[in-house]
Design a protein around this nucleic acid. Structure first.
Length: 597
DNA sequence: ATTAGGG
DNA sequence: CCCTAAT
């Protein structure tokens, strides 16, 4: 019936509509895109794996809800460089079983803070020693302050949501002098240098279940993973990249706080493990390097050597239904990060916190000729593709064991990228069905813009204090208020000639003021073309027909169609005028519309 | 929910 | 395509 109607009303074959993959907001060439994607694959795997593990753990934890023992043996899974916060809140309104439980059973909330400047890095087993030598944990290299683990369990106020969130935060430089204040929803840390940061506690505002994401719907058991970012890299630490058990530890811990000693012990234990696994996660910030992303080697003469080690993942916001599989979640995260990076990025160079725009100036001229100054060198990752990609990212995971590669692929240690600036929001509803429709959203904020407005962000996860002189490659988090996680721009789906023909035909008959009817007539139930879309398309068609063929872009529309567009446009415009003039529109319409019959 | 128009 | 205002 529907098909028949469609055929009768325009003859458009909807099955022929190509389903292009969701594109991102910015344009980028295919070649650039592919390269980037490939080069970052391992990073994505890591993140995806992490998310998968978290989900896994959260689910198992949910089933055994209220048992949170203090098993130290379970503590050894911490996520380096991140503030981890887990929320597992069942929707008591929709789950009778849980509703009968006490609040504390229903909800658990865990907050774990660890040095945020840690970076995820892939390191061959043989490199473990080197990595470990960077800063012995036992010597106090760990920022014990940020090593504090806060575990709270209680009934969250407000809506109950089953959420899971990971957020990395600012790190502090000298842990031994830091103090932590837990003040309701935020934690304020301050060191002797009055450098401070605040940790906002997300648990206080549990995530509300999303009621709508496009035409997708989030169920009561939606999972939320929020991945923020570190801002002030400083300290050094080592952590196991393995995430299995990370949540386990979190959920089984009921203590409100872990002290430094415990943290240190865990770190030590973890350090060993990472060697076994061949993976290491650490930051290189505390070793006299002001930029976490840059490691410089002694400069000989004019040459400047540096390697960028850290790989910072910008914030990701992902929502998937609780019924989603771990695999789908992984895929989702993968796509999110892939889209993030694959969309093209630019590298910005910061010297002493200031962006260097002149690509032609030499490093010496920029003041990067000596080692000390290299400390002030930083890189930023900016939206948009680079005309001349400066760096190629080696992808080498051949030395990974299969298990490692499958469970927790790590980043290539030579990964020269530092993701800082890009802010991406991804929403996934029913991810299985719509996984191909993921649309990453990137806020087009340049590093410069952020620097101009360092800390004005109402939605900032981590309010950023004034930048330190040596806090390089650091850009305050800034978000635009609009376009939250609830909405993603739809994939651009260029109208085919067939569609245009169908549209023109319908408009010829119905006019330009009845887009709903036009839609129904020309596109039937095709959900991807709304009447607004058709209205917009008509607008562009009129414009296209009005300009010279040389100025037109995209798939050429036959001139014959464009002529019809203009004719119909003139006609219905005139018709509208007559209507406004309160003339006998009906009679006129019949007469004039005959031209189209 | 639609329509109209700017972004 | 998105967003809004006005219906």
């Amino acid at each position: 019936m529907v098909v028949k109607r469609r055929l009768n009303c325009g003859g458009f074959d909807f099955s022929s509509i190509p389903k292009a993959p969701r594109s991102t907001r910015r344009k980028v060439s295919t070649t650039e895109r592919d390269d980037d994607v490939d080069s970052h694959i391992t990073a994505f795997d890591l993140l995806a794996s992490l998310a998968g593990k978290l989900l896994e753990e959260s689910e198992s934890s949910s089933s055994t809800s209220s048992t949170y023992g203090g098993d130290d043996s379970q503590e050894d899974h911490l996520l380096a460089g991140k503030m981890i916060k887990l929320e597992q809140v069942e929707d008591v309104y929709n789950n009778n079983k849980l509703a009968s439980k006490s609040p504390s059973e229903i909800t658990s909330e865990t907050s774990l803070r660890i040095p945020s400047d840690c970076v995820l890095e892939q390191t061959p087993v043989s490199d473990c020693k080197r990595a470990l030598d960077l800063k012995p944990l036992e010597s106090g290299g760990i920022t014990e302050e940020t090593g504090v683990v806060n575990v709270g369990a209680g009934f969250e106020q407000g809506e109950a949501t089953n959420g899971l969130m990971i957020t990395d935060t600012i790190s502090l430089k000298d842990p031994s002098h830091e103090s932590v204040h837990r003040d309701g929803s935020k934690l304020v840390c301050r060191d002797d240098d009055e450098n401070y940061c605040k940790y906002y506690k997300f648990s206080d505002k549990s995530y509300r279940p999303m009621t709508r994401v496009g035409h997708r719907r989030i169920t009561k058991k939606s999972m939320v993973i929020k991945y923020g970012r570190a801002v002030v890299p400083r300290s050094k630490c080592f952590k196991d990249t393995r995430t299995d058990g990370c949540l386990k530890a979190l959920y089984r811990k009921r203590k409100l706080c872990y002290g430094y000693n415990q943290w240190k012990h865990e770190s030590v234990r973890r350090k060993r493990r990472l060697c076994d696994k061949g993976w290491v996660v650490y930051s290189d910030g505390g070793g006299g390097l002001s930029s976490e992303s840059v490691t410089n080697s002694p400069v000989k003469g004019e040459s400047v050597k540096l390697s960028i080690k850290s790989f910072r993942i910008p914030e990701l916001f992902i929502e998937v239904p609780g019924t989603a599989t771990v695999g789908s979640l992984k895929r989702t995260v993968m796509e999110a990060v892939t889209a993030l990076l694959g969309d093209g990025i630019r590298i910005g160079v910061l010297v002493q916190g200031k962006k260097v725009r002149d690509d032609k100036s030499t490093l010496s001229q920029t003041g990067l000729s000596c080692r000390e100054n290299l400390d002030n060198l930083g890189f930023t990752l900016e939206p948009g593709s680079s005309e001349n990609p400066v760096i190629s990212m080696p992808t080498d995971s051949t030395n990974l064991s299969e298990r490692s590669a499958a469970s927790s692929p790590a980043l290539d240690s030579r990964s020269p990228f530092l993701l800082q600036d890009a802010h991406h929001v991804i929403n996934i509803g029913t991810c299985v069905e719509n996984s191909q429709e993921l649309v990453p959203y990137q806020i087009d904020i340049t590093a410069d813009e952020r620097q101009q407005q360092p800390s004005s962000d109402s939605r900032a996860i981590v309010p950023v204090p004034p930048m330190e002189p040596d806090a390089l490659a650091i850009v305050p988090l800034k978000e635009k208020p609009k376009r939250t996680e609830l909405s993603q721009r739809r994939t651009r789906r260029p109208f085919s000639v067939t569609e245009v023909e169908s549209l023109v035909h319908a408009v010829e008959e119905l006019g330009t003021g009845r887009w709903r009817d036009v839609k129904l007539r020309s596109f039937g139930d095709a959900s991807h073309r709304t009447y607004v879309d058709l209205k917009d398309k008509w607008k562009t068609l009129v414009h296209t027909a009005s300009i010279s063929p040389q100025q037109r872009r995209g798939e050429p529309v036959p001139q014959e169609l464009l002529d019809r567009v203009l004719a119909a446009h003139r006609h219905w415009s005139q018709h509208q005028v007559k209507q406004n003039g309160k003339h006998q529109a009906a009679a006129t319409m019949v007469v004039e519309s005959g031209a189209f019959m």
